[in-house]
Protein backbone atom coordinates (compact mmCIF):
# COMPACT_ATOMS: atom_id res chain seq x y z
CA UNK A 1 0.00 0.00 0.00
CA UNK A 2 1.27 3.43 -0.85
CA UNK A 3 2.15 5.24 2.37
CA UNK A 4 0.36 8.47 3.00
CA UNK A 5 2.40 10.11 5.73
CA UNK A 6 5.10 9.58 8.27
CA UNK A 7 3.08 7.75 10.86
CA UNK A 8 0.08 7.07 8.73
CA UNK A 9 1.71 4.25 6.73
CA UNK A 10 2.14 2.28 9.87
CA UNK A 11 -1.47 2.93 10.67
CA UNK A 12 -2.51 1.58 7.32
CA UNK A 13 -0.17 -1.35 7.53
CA UNK A 14 -1.39 -1.89 11.07
CA UNK A 15 -3.38 -4.91 9.95
CA UNK A 16 -0.11 -6.75 10.29
CA UNK A 17 0.31 -6.14 13.95
CA UNK A 18 -0.65 -9.20 15.88
CA UNK A 19 -2.32 -8.46 19.14
CA UNK A 20 -3.50 -5.08 17.90
CA UNK A 21 -5.87 -5.92 15.10
CA UNK A 22 -6.54 -9.58 15.27
CA UNK A 23 -9.78 -9.65 13.32
CA UNK A 24 -8.20 -8.05 10.29
CA UNK A 25 -5.17 -10.25 10.59
CA UNK A 26 -7.28 -13.38 10.56
CA UNK A 27 -8.88 -11.97 7.43
CA UNK A 28 -5.43 -11.85 5.87
CA UNK A 29 -4.80 -15.44 6.79
CA UNK A 30 -8.09 -16.49 5.31
CA UNK A 31 -7.15 -14.72 2.12
CA UNK A 32 -3.96 -16.70 1.94
CA UNK A 33 -5.63 -20.00 2.61
CA UNK A 34 -8.50 -19.31 0.22
CA UNK A 35 -6.64 -21.07 -2.59
CA UNK A 36 -6.62 -24.21 -0.50
CA UNK A 37 -10.34 -23.89 0.11
CA UNK A 38 -11.12 -23.44 -3.56
CA UNK A 39 -9.30 -26.65 -4.28
CA UNK A 40 -11.26 -28.22 -1.51
CA UNK A 41 -14.56 -27.37 -3.16
CA UNK A 42 -13.44 -28.14 -6.69
CA UNK A 43 -11.38 -31.23 -6.23
CA UNK A 44 -13.02 -32.72 -3.20
CA UNK A 45 -11.66 -33.11 0.28
CA UNK A 46 -9.71 -36.29 -0.26
CA UNK A 47 -7.89 -34.99 -3.31
CA UNK A 48 -6.82 -31.84 -1.50
CA UNK A 49 -5.54 -33.91 1.37
CA UNK A 50 -3.34 -35.90 -0.96
CA UNK A 51 -2.10 -32.94 -2.99
CA UNK A 52 -1.57 -30.26 -0.35
CA UNK A 53 2.11 -29.56 0.07
CA UNK A 54 3.28 -29.00 3.60
CA UNK A 55 4.04 -25.35 2.97
CA UNK A 56 3.09 -23.50 -0.18
CA UNK A 57 5.68 -20.77 0.11
CA UNK A 58 8.30 -19.85 2.69
CA UNK A 59 7.18 -17.40 5.33
CA UNK A 60 10.45 -15.48 5.27
CA UNK A 61 10.53 -12.97 2.45
CA UNK A 62 14.21 -13.21 1.62
CA UNK A 63 13.95 -11.63 -1.79
CA UNK A 64 11.39 -8.93 -1.07
CA UNK A 65 12.03 -6.00 -3.41
CA UNK A 66 13.60 -3.03 -1.70
CA UNK A 67 11.74 0.16 -2.33
CA UNK A 68 13.44 3.41 -3.24
CA UNK A 69 12.22 6.76 -2.05
CA UNK A 70 12.28 9.47 -4.69
CA UNK A 71 12.39 12.78 -2.86
CA UNK A 72 12.28 16.52 -3.47
CA UNK A 73 12.54 19.07 -0.68
CA UNK A 74 11.89 22.76 -0.21
CA UNK A 75 10.73 25.29 2.34
CA UNK A 76 8.28 28.15 2.70
CA UNK A 77 8.01 30.94 5.29
CA UNK A 78 5.27 30.60 7.88
CA UNK A 79 3.57 33.74 6.56
CA UNK A 80 3.04 32.21 3.09
CA UNK A 81 2.20 28.68 4.17
CA UNK A 82 -1.56 29.20 3.93
CA UNK A 83 -1.33 30.12 0.25
CA UNK A 84 0.61 26.94 -0.44
CA UNK A 85 -1.85 24.84 1.55
CA UNK A 86 -4.73 26.24 -0.48
CA UNK A 87 -2.96 25.51 -3.73
CA UNK A 88 -2.12 21.96 -2.65
CA UNK A 89 -5.69 21.39 -1.59
CA UNK A 90 -6.85 22.33 -5.06
CA UNK A 91 -4.20 20.29 -6.86
CA UNK A 92 -4.27 17.09 -4.83
CA UNK A 93 -6.70 14.20 -4.55
CA UNK A 94 -9.72 14.33 -2.24
CA UNK A 95 -9.87 18.12 -2.42
CA UNK A 96 -13.41 18.11 -1.06
CA UNK A 97 -12.50 16.35 2.19
CA UNK A 98 -10.71 17.98 5.15
CA UNK A 99 -6.90 18.09 5.00
CA UNK A 100 -5.27 15.29 6.93
CA UNK A 101 -3.07 16.45 9.81
CA UNK A 102 -0.24 14.68 11.61
CA UNK A 103 1.74 15.29 14.78
CA UNK A 104 4.58 12.80 15.10
CA UNK A 105 7.70 12.34 17.15
CA UNK A 106 10.69 10.82 15.40
CA UNK A 107 13.66 9.44 17.29
CA UNK A 108 16.86 8.49 15.51
CA UNK A 109 18.80 5.62 17.07
CA UNK A 110 22.32 4.63 16.08
CA UNK A 111 24.58 1.71 16.77
CA UNK A 112 28.29 1.43 16.06
CA UNK A 113 29.43 -2.04 15.23
CA UNK A 114 32.77 -2.47 16.94
CA UNK A 115 33.88 -5.22 14.57
CA UNK A 116 33.84 -3.23 11.33
CA UNK A 117 33.40 0.31 12.73
CA UNK A 118 30.24 0.79 10.67
CA UNK A 119 27.43 2.96 12.03
CA UNK A 120 23.81 2.05 11.45
CA UNK A 121 20.86 4.20 12.24
CA UNK A 122 17.16 3.39 12.52
CA UNK A 123 14.27 5.78 13.05
CA UNK A 124 11.35 5.16 15.40
CA UNK A 125 8.26 7.24 14.77
CA UNK A 126 4.99 7.50 16.64
CA UNK A 127 1.87 9.63 16.23
CA UNK A 128 1.53 11.87 19.30
CA UNK A 129 -2.06 12.74 18.41
CA UNK A 130 -2.99 9.06 18.31
CA UNK A 131 -0.50 6.98 20.34
CA UNK A 132 -2.57 3.81 19.84
CA UNK A 133 -1.47 3.67 16.21
CA UNK A 134 1.38 1.26 15.48
CA UNK A 135 4.88 2.65 15.76
CA UNK A 136 6.97 2.93 12.65
CA UNK A 137 10.53 1.67 12.31
CA UNK A 138 12.32 3.15 9.34
CA UNK A 139 15.65 2.47 7.69
CA UNK A 140 16.86 5.27 5.42
CA UNK A 141 19.84 4.58 3.17
CA UNK A 142 22.44 6.97 1.82
CA UNK A 143 20.91 9.30 -0.79
CA UNK A 144 22.17 9.19 -4.35
CA UNK A 145 22.46 12.77 -5.48
CA UNK A 146 25.43 12.62 -7.85
CA UNK A 147 23.51 11.47 -10.93
CA UNK A 148 22.80 14.72 -12.82
CA UNK A 149 20.36 13.04 -15.21
CA UNK A 150 18.07 12.26 -12.29
CA UNK A 151 15.82 15.04 -11.10
CA UNK A 152 15.18 13.70 -7.58
CA UNK A 153 17.08 12.37 -4.60
CA UNK A 154 16.88 8.60 -4.62
CA UNK A 155 17.44 6.60 -1.45
CA UNK A 156 16.62 3.17 -0.15
CA UNK A 157 13.85 3.20 2.47
CA UNK A 158 12.31 0.36 4.46
CA UNK A 159 9.24 1.13 6.54
CA UNK A 160 8.04 -1.36 9.12
CA UNK A 161 4.94 -1.04 11.28
CA UNK A 162 5.63 -2.36 14.78
CA UNK A 163 4.19 -2.81 18.24
CA UNK A 164 4.60 -0.09 20.87
CA UNK A 165 7.64 -1.65 22.57
CA UNK A 166 9.88 -0.52 19.70
CA UNK A 167 12.04 1.83 21.78
CA UNK A 168 12.76 -0.84 24.41
CA UNK A 169 13.57 -3.30 21.62
CA UNK A 170 16.06 -0.88 20.02
CA UNK A 171 17.72 -0.19 23.37
CA UNK A 172 18.06 -3.88 24.17
CA UNK A 173 19.69 -4.47 20.81
CA UNK A 174 22.29 -1.86 21.69
CA UNK A 175 20.95 1.13 19.74
CA UNK A 176 21.27 4.50 21.47
CA UNK A 177 19.22 7.65 20.96
CA UNK A 178 21.09 10.11 18.77
CA UNK A 179 18.52 12.90 18.35
CA UNK A 180 14.78 13.43 18.21
CA UNK A 181 12.34 15.92 16.75
CA UNK A 182 8.63 16.53 16.46
CA UNK A 183 6.99 17.08 13.08
CA UNK A 184 3.57 18.73 12.86
CA UNK A 185 1.83 19.37 9.62
CA UNK A 186 -0.42 18.43 6.74
CA UNK A 187 -0.41 15.44 4.38
CA UNK A 188 -1.61 15.53 0.80
CA UNK A 189 -1.77 12.80 -1.78
CA UNK A 190 -1.67 13.09 -5.53
CA UNK A 191 -1.75 9.70 -7.25
CA UNK A 192 1.24 7.85 -5.89
CA UNK A 193 2.94 11.04 -4.72
CA UNK A 194 2.90 12.11 -1.09
CA UNK A 195 3.29 15.75 -0.12
CA UNK A 196 4.14 16.76 3.44
CA UNK A 197 3.94 20.36 4.65
CA UNK A 198 5.46 20.16 8.09
CA UNK A 199 6.91 22.24 10.85
CA UNK A 200 9.95 20.72 12.51
CA UNK A 201 10.32 21.25 16.26
CA UNK A 202 13.28 20.66 18.52
CA UNK A 203 12.49 18.72 21.71
CA UNK A 204 13.98 20.89 24.47
CA UNK A 205 13.71 18.33 27.23
CA UNK A 206 14.48 14.80 26.10
CA UNK A 207 11.62 12.42 26.73
CA UNK A 208 9.07 15.22 27.01
CA UNK A 209 7.54 15.97 23.59
CA UNK A 210 5.48 18.80 25.09
CA UNK A 211 8.50 21.11 25.44
CA UNK A 212 8.92 22.14 21.83
CA UNK A 213 10.75 24.88 20.06
CA UNK A 214 10.44 25.49 16.29
CA UNK A 215 13.69 24.89 14.45
CA UNK A 216 13.01 27.75 12.00
CA UNK A 217 10.39 30.22 10.85
CA UNK A 218 9.60 28.03 7.86
CA UNK A 219 7.71 24.92 6.88
CA UNK A 220 9.57 21.99 5.34
CA UNK A 221 7.93 20.68 2.17
CA UNK A 222 8.63 17.14 1.00
CA UNK A 223 7.37 15.55 -2.18
CA UNK A 224 8.07 11.83 -2.22
CA UNK A 225 7.16 8.53 -3.83
CA UNK A 226 8.06 5.04 -2.65
CA UNK A 227 8.58 2.82 -5.68
CA UNK A 228 10.76 -0.02 -6.94
CA UNK A 229 14.19 1.00 -8.30
CA UNK A 230 14.72 2.31 -11.84
CA UNK A 231 11.44 4.09 -12.31
CA UNK A 232 12.85 6.89 -14.41
CA UNK A 233 9.43 8.21 -15.45
CA UNK A 234 8.70 9.06 -11.84
CA UNK A 235 11.20 11.91 -11.90
CA UNK A 236 9.30 13.57 -14.76
CA UNK A 237 5.99 13.15 -12.96
CA UNK A 238 7.39 14.70 -9.79
CA UNK A 239 9.07 17.52 -11.71
CA UNK A 240 5.78 18.37 -13.41
CA UNK A 241 4.02 18.54 -10.05
CA UNK A 242 6.82 20.58 -8.44
CA UNK A 243 6.56 23.09 -11.32
CA UNK A 244 2.92 23.69 -10.43
CA UNK A 245 3.97 24.86 -6.97
CA UNK A 246 6.37 27.48 -8.30
CA UNK A 247 7.05 30.21 -7.42
CA UNK A 248 5.60 29.62 -3.95
CA UNK A 249 8.09 26.88 -3.23
CA UNK A 250 11.12 25.59 -5.14
CA UNK A 251 11.30 21.85 -4.70
CA UNK A 252 14.82 20.61 -5.36
CA UNK A 253 17.07 17.69 -4.76
CA UNK A 254 19.04 18.75 -1.72
CA UNK A 255 22.52 17.37 -1.21
CA UNK A 256 22.48 16.67 2.54
CA UNK A 257 26.20 15.91 2.65
CA UNK A 258 27.05 19.41 1.36
CA UNK A 259 24.63 21.00 3.83
CA UNK A 260 26.41 19.20 6.62
CA UNK A 261 29.84 20.46 5.57
CA UNK A 262 28.77 24.09 5.29
Amino acid sequence: MQPLGPAVPSALNGIAIAGLRLGEMRGKFEQQSSSVRIRQTLGGYRIMQAEAPIVEQPLTRKNAANLQEYLLQGSILDSSADVLLNRLRGLCDNSDSPVELFHDIEQVYTIKDQANQATFSLRARNALDNPQLPWQLRYVGQPEVGDKSRFTICRSVIEVGTSSNLVTWLNELGFRLDYEFVAKGHIFQKGRMKILVQKIHRVCQSGNPETLEPVSQSFLIELSVLAPPSQESLGEEMKAFADQLRPLVELEKVDHARLHVS
Binding site: N13, A16, L20, A64, F120, Y139, G141, S156, V160, T162
Partner: peptide, 18 residues
Amino acid sequence: LVADANFDSLMNKLTPQL
Protein backbone atom coordinates in the same frame (compact mmCIF):
# COMPACT_ATOMS: atom_id res chain seq x y z
CA LEU B 1 8.58 -6.96 18.95
CA VAL B 2 5.69 -7.58 16.56
CA ALA B 3 6.33 -6.08 13.16
CA ASP B 4 4.84 -6.23 9.70
CA ALA B 5 6.25 -8.23 6.82
CA ASN B 6 8.74 -5.53 5.81
CA PHE B 7 10.79 -6.53 8.83
CA ASP B 8 12.34 -9.29 6.71
CA SER B 9 13.60 -6.66 4.24
CA LEU B 10 15.09 -4.72 7.14
CA MET B 11 16.93 -7.78 8.42
CA ASN B 12 18.25 -8.40 4.88
CA LYS B 13 19.61 -4.86 4.95
CA LEU B 14 21.29 -5.30 8.36
CA THR B 15 22.79 -8.68 7.42
CA PRO B 16 25.69 -9.40 7.31
CA GLN B 17 27.10 -6.03 8.45
CA LEU B 18 25.29 -5.90 11.80
